[in-house]
Amino acid sequence: MSDYIAGELPAGTAGEMEAHLAECGGCRRTLEELRAVVAEAEALGPMAPPRDLWAGIAATIQAPLVPPHAQTKVIAFPGQAAAEARAREERTGRLSFSAPQLAAASIVLIAASSLATWLVGPGFGGGPLGFVDAMGSAGAVVAASDEAAPPELADELQALERTLEEARSVLDPNTVRILERNLAVIEQAIADSRLALQQDPENEFLARHLERVYERKLDFLREAARVAEWSD
């Protein structure tokens, strides 16, 4: 009968159906009811969510450095800068990251707000994107950011931050600039996430998101500490 409604029955079969419907009141009623169901279903429209979901989406899509499909646009070393970095590395023996290393590092750079303190501390204030200017006092931002870190992660985060603070001088300045540029985006994403959560504190999605961000931050700090060891 649904094929008949859709007009998909072969002509002969459709004819037989119509002949039967002409004689059978029960089937006529069923057909009418099925057509009514179809008409009502087709009339169903969109539904507005009970609340605006954009804040949670925005917080998440702003957290990564860039959309994954465009990631290399941000993390790739400009050719000139890469050549200069390699030359500098050869001259000074200081640690520099290759483009693949930076690409790998970008995965864990997300939410590395404490590393931002490390990078934009004395000697790094006001990076190429005006990180400190944009964020206000870097220390204040990170302090506020740290307040939202899960308690079980806090001790290890602080220990790793101390390790990295001691090791920051071994990093190549070009590497620092790239990290700084990415971290400015990350820091903004953390701030946005926290703001969204403050505005919608019952949103479990946002809470889970912030927690995941801090877990990634911890992963990054661990990785960065290992890199610092290599440079000793």
Binding site: P49, P50, R51, L53, G56, I57, T60, I61, P67, P68, H69, A70, E204, F205
Partner: peptide, 17 residues
């Protein structure tokens, strides 16, 4: 539905390429 909708748009963002 709310969580799913958010996930779908985040997934769409990631796959826009």
């Amino acid at each position: 539905a709310e969580d799913l909708t958010q996930e779908i748009f985040i997934r769409a963002w990631n796959k826009l390429g």
